[in-house]
Design a protein around this nucleic acid. Structure first.
Length: 371
RNA sequence: GGCCCGUUCGUCUAGGGGUUAGGACGUUAGAUUUUCAUUCUAGAAACAGGGGUUCGAUUCCCCUACGGGCUACCA
């Protein structure tokens, strides 16, 4: 080995005079044990003989991470250093650096957090896993200029910041009760580093989605409004009426897991269905049913404002008069308004759409079903 | 290979010397919803193995196994 330890002082000076490229390393002491108290793991110690003399300053003059963190943390007066468990093996280097630099009294408290692992297989979670398994690994979309590769983030996928924070906080931590849903304020109040678990946790996207669904359900309409509006407008839907948008959100929010689901769940409130699930109606479509709906249009026209309960009562009364089971007519009615087999209660939808729109959609769909 | 860290249902976890080992996600069955989702009820499902210590260990100690991390002039 050829370095300042194996060469004589004279030889070193000579090489230095000739500006020979070189690095600067930390010199680990022999036969010592360096240890510290980790806030999560308790006392951790290492044999100095097992730790190698890490490069601190590269040949190009730039510091490595090891030198940089210590200097940076010292300058920024960092009191607590939280980092991933993968840093544990280099902790002795940092510890000694704090000491050698004469800053030992200012050294921060350490906490090495457990790692987030791949849901399948083994190893720590990487952005590749997200691409491979179909879920995000970053909070926000990230574009790699070097590779030209776009990695989608939780936000763009339709996660609420509150939900993302919540799921991250409870991955490896809990307050000792059965509570799983926490607001930021609650986390600030209840979080304690002592309750962070030591073992790595496999990431579970299903549970992540559950957190988001829960947060969408418990969020107030006003807090969801701007995000939903953005999603709908991105899809080319013009929002003209604020109040209408709020009522739509109120009606569909409990069936959305991701914010992006608001498009599929509420697009039909803003524009007529582009496609109809004709197959679910056509085979059982009869002239009698067509007649029912033209009669129902009459009923609607005789009503001042559509109100869900009253409309449903009228619908059922008319069905009975016509001699057709109401159940046979509900699905066709839904498909007329929505286009498919989904959405909230049909009469809620009709009431919100309003008289004219409802009538228009019935007329249009009837002609499609007849033809 | 060496060093370090870890190990309770499939997954995230609670618990802790004597418990029917609790909850959540997912899953299964049923109810409600004349769509789907929500909601509700019920079910299946775990202390890695071996030694100690102890009247008694899943819980404390040791070993093994397994898992993870690090072992770059990357962070």
């Amino acid at each position: 080995m050829r370095n300042s330890l194996s060469l004589t002082g004279h030889q070193v000076d000579e090489l230095l005079d000739k500006h020979t490229p070189h690095v600067i390393r930390i010199k680990m002491p022999a036969d010592e044990r360096v240890g510290f108290d980790d806030m999560i793991r308790g006392h951790v110690s290492f044999e100095t003989n097992q730790v190698d003399d890490k490069v601190l300053l590269k040949a190009d003059g730039m510091p490595t991470y090891h030198l940089a963190v210590v200097v940076d943390d010292y300058l920024m007066k960092i009191s607590h250093a939280f980092r991933g468990e993968e840093w544990l093996p280099s902790a002795p280097v940092h510890l000694l650096l704090w000491e050698y630099l004469g800053w030992k009294a200012d050294m921060p408290q350490w906490a090495h957090l457990p790692l987030i692992l791949k849901p399948d297989g083994h190893g720590k979670l990487s952005k590749r896993d997200g691409a491979r398994l179909g879920f995000p690994v970053y909070a926000m979309s990230w574009f790699d200029v070097k590779t030209g590769e776009l990695t989608p983030g939780f936000r763009e996928l339709g996660f609420l910041p509150e939900a993302f924070l919540n799921l991250l906080a409870t991955l490896g931590w809990n307050d000792g009760t059965d509570q799983e849903l926490f607001t930021l304020d609650e986390l600030i109040e209840k979080f304690s580093i002592e309750r962070v678990s030591k073992a790595g946790a496999k990431f579970d996207f299903e549970k992540a989605k559950w957190f988001n669904a829960e947060w969408i359900k418990k969020s107030e309409v006003w807090s969801l409004k701007s995000k939903v509006r953005e999603i709908l407008e991105d899809k080319g839907i013009a929002i003209v009426n604020e109040d209408y948008l709020e009522r739509v959100i109120e009606l569909v929010k409990e069936r959305c897991v991701l914010l992006t689901d608001f498009y599929q769940q509420s697009a039909y409130f803003f524009e007529q269905p582009k496609e109809y699930d004709v197959n679910s109606v056509k085979p059982k479509w009869t002239d009698a049913k067509a007649e029912f709906f033209s009669a129902f249009i009459g009923t609607i026209n005789n009503t001042d404002t559509l109100e869900p309960d009253a409309l449903e009562a009228d619908f059922k009364a008319l069905a009975e008069e016509t001699g057709i089971k109401a159940g046979e007519l509900m699905l066709p009615f839904r498909i007329m308004l929505v286009g498919g087999k989904f959405g909230p209660h049909v009469f809620d939808i009709a009431a919100l759409l309003g008289k004219e729109e409802t009538v228009m959609r019935i007329e249009k769909a009837v002609s499609i079903f007849n033809g």
